[in-house]
Amino acid sequence: MIMKRLSLLLLALCVMGGAANAQKKPFRDGDVFSKGDVVLNLGIGLGNMVYNDSYTKKVPPISLSGEYAVTGNLFNNGRGVVGLGAYIGYTGAKYRAFDNLDAGWNFNNLILGVRGALHYQFVNRLDTYLGLFLGYNITMTNDYGSFPSGLRPSAPAVGGFEFAFYVGARYYLTQRFAVFGEVGYGLATVNLGLAYKF
């Protein structure tokens, strides 16, 4: 259900980006992210940092985040912006408790948090930033298979508070539609996706 909704949102972003591209407005310095702008990011993670190699059937981290440009015109050239926003992410995996028995646990993780970033535009169309994320990993666990009588180990502990630094960049294909990449985030080593500016 979550995947279906995120797919529909991705489709809507593509349609909006196409409409913005049809207007063919020229880019100007400072247009990528300015005070009062709101940007919505939809991404997929590469390299699951929540689950290591002992887990199987890992779901790639999927994230949706929004960011509001709180202040702008920082530094002498006015190219600095501070953004604040909310984050929601999802990932999951399967853990097999025994090598020779198909029994264990299914994990589903919902990560909720806030993040703040300092943006700086070095070149036209490119919004580069570094930021801080603070959130909580809500873990839902359920058993699968049949455990031997009297032999039921405890499920691995997953979840809790999340804290991470990240760096990223958005490249605007149109005035509103962009592709983005982030490195060093809490759910995945690399996060790639699409962004839309309102």
Rank of each mutant, 00 (worst) to 15 (best):
D102Y: 11
V15Q: 04
G89T: 02
F165Q: 03
V183P: 02
N124V: 03
N100A: 15
N106R: 04
N48W: 01
M16W: 10
G18H: 02
G17C: 03
S54C: 08
T189N: 13
N76F: 09
L112Q: 05
R79D: 11
Y87C: 04
L151G: 10
K57P: 04
D29G: 12
A188K: 01
T139L: 09
A188T: 05
E162W: 01
S154Y: 09
V114D: 06
L10H: 14
G30A: 04
A164S: 15
T56K: 07
L40N: 09
S34Y: 07
L64D: 05
S63C: 13
K24T: 10
A157K: 14
L74G: 00
V38G: 10
Y51G: 11
N108G: 14
I44T: 14
F198M: 04
M1I: 11
M3W: 09
Y90V: 11
A20E: 08
G30Y: 00
N191Q: 09
L84H: 02
G181L: 13
G168H: 01
V123W: 01
M1V: 12
G45C: 08
I44K: 11
Y95W: 14
G36N: 05
K35G: 10
Y172Q: 09
R170H: 04
L187E: 14
H119G: 12
L126I: 10
N191Y: 01
L173W: 08
G78I: 07
G85W: 03
P61H: 09
G43T: 03
L40M: 12
C14N: 14
S154H: 10
K24N: 14
G104H: 08
Y185V: 15
T91M: 12
G18V: 06
M3V: 08
R5A: 15
A155V: 02
N21Q: 12
L74M: 13
F177E: 07
N100Y: 12
D143W: 00
R176M: 09
L132Y: 04
A155P: 02
V38P: 07
N77E: 05
F177A: 05
D29H: 12
F27K: 07
P61I: 06
R28K: 07
A155Y: 01
I62M: 15
M3A: 15
L110Q: 12
N73H: 10
S149M: 06
A117G: 04
L64N: 04
N108Y: 09
N100T: 13
L11H: 06
G113C: 02
L134G: 06
G159N: 00
V50T: 14
N21L: 12
Y144S: 06
V15M: 14
